[in-house]
């Protein structure tokens, strides 16, 4: 103890300054290392390598929905030693799905998850890919006539029945017309979805005649959906009492138009998907009901299908995804 006390102040100061200097140098080096790591994303980042490379080609219009699907599918893919890329989101040029299919085929990916939309020539591209040994899984909308390995989603018949049931619940004595906003290129007569809704409405409106119409808003240009819906609200005979929307953008546009034209209560929207805007509207009772496929299941099943193809050599041709019907009551329950 005594010896320690005798150590000169100068020595303490020297030791102290040495320590400060060492500490400072250590901090600077650590900090600098971190900066270099931050700055070195392109060059020195350690990359994890995977066995398979899958592509997901979707319609970029419904970003929230597809992002949710992509997120789930991406996680699932990583579990199965695969990396999933989404096409159709970030691109300088406006490519069609056929173009994306071409690119994927040329890039020799290990699997394609495609949202089929009935685009011309897309079915041939699916066949071409499959012929070149690239498995194709269609999601949400099916291309049953193609050579696709699998379909993940719900068939039009079931979806139509679900929508039909919801429409039937909303039909009352004031209901004179129902409008179904279709979102795919398909002949109306073959559209099971429309047929199911139609029959449900007919059954519901036994006492009086209800006019049921459909409008295909699968547009060429990006902003058409909004214009079409506005024109529906502005038409001479007025908007329909029940508006059935089959995708996220349509639902949100219809909801916004309903508020803008002050027709809350007069127009009942049956929505699709559970984006924040839609869920808020449902919570407030402005949209009576919204229907959504389980995004998690879509992701999981599509990756499962591809994995199964590579591991077993074949895959289930059909994966059914659960359908969630969300009303004001159930949304409150969810919140609670």
């Amino acid at each position: 103890m005594k010896n320690r006390k005798q150590i000169n102040k100068e020595v303490w100061l020297m030791v102290l300054s040495l320590l400060i200097a060492a500490l400072f140098i250590f901090i600077m080096i650590t900090y600098y290392k971190r900066i270099m790591e931050d700055a070195g994303v392109t060059a020195e980042e350690v990359n994890h390598e995977y066995r398979y490379h899958y592509e997901m080609i979707v319609d970029s219009r419904n970003l929230t929905f597809w992002n949710a699907v992509y997120e789930n599918a991406g996680e699932k893919a990583l579990e199965h030693d695969a990396i999933l890329e989404m096409k159709g989101i970030e691109s300088a040029e406006n490519y069609s799905k056929s173009d994306y299919m071409d690119m994927c085929i040329a890039a020799q990916v290990d699997g394609i998850i495609l949202e089929y939309n009935g685009e011309e020539g897309l079915q041939d591209k699916i066949d071409e890919a499959v012929e070149k040994g690239i498995p194709v899984v269609t999601i949400v909308n099916d291309a049953p006539k193609s050579l696709r390995q699998s379909f993940v989603g719900i068939n039009d018949y079931q979806l139509g029945q679900a929508y039909g049931a919801e429409v039937a619940k909303l039909v009352d004595s004031d209901t004179r017309s129902v409008l179904v906003l279709l979102n795919r290129v398909q002949e109306l007569g073959q559209n099971q979805l429309y047929a199911q809704i139609n029959s449900a409405v007919e059954n519901a409106g036994q006492n009086h005649k209800i006019k049921i119409q459909s409008e295909n808003i699968m547009s060429q240009s990006q902003f058409d959906t909004e214009e079409v819906i506005r024109s529906i609200f502005q038409s001479e005979e007025g908007p329909p009492q029940i508006l059935v929307c089959l995708d996220e953008v349509t639902t949100e546009c219809a909801y916004q138009a309903m508020i803008d034209y002050n027709m809350v209560g007069e127009v009942k929207i049956i929505g699709y998907y559970t984006s924040k805007t839609i869920m808020d509207a449902v919570g407030k009772g402005l949209i009576p009901v919204t229907i959504s496929m389980d995004v998690e299941q879509i992701g999981t099943y599509s990756i499962e299908a591809l994995t199964e193809y590579w591991e077993v050599g074949r895959a289930n041709s059909y994966y059914t995804v659960d359908l969630n019907v969300i009303t004001e009551d159930s949304s409150r329950k969810q919140e609670n």
Partner: peptide, 24 residues
């Protein structure tokens, strides 16, 4: 260019370009 499937978007794009170039 990289030719393996990787989780880095740059590397993945490189892979795509390489494979597409081969096809081209």
């Amino acid at each position: 260019l990289n030719d393996r499937p990787m989780d880095n978007p740059v590397k993945l794009l490189e892979k795509n370009i390489r494979k597409m170039s081969e096809t081209y």
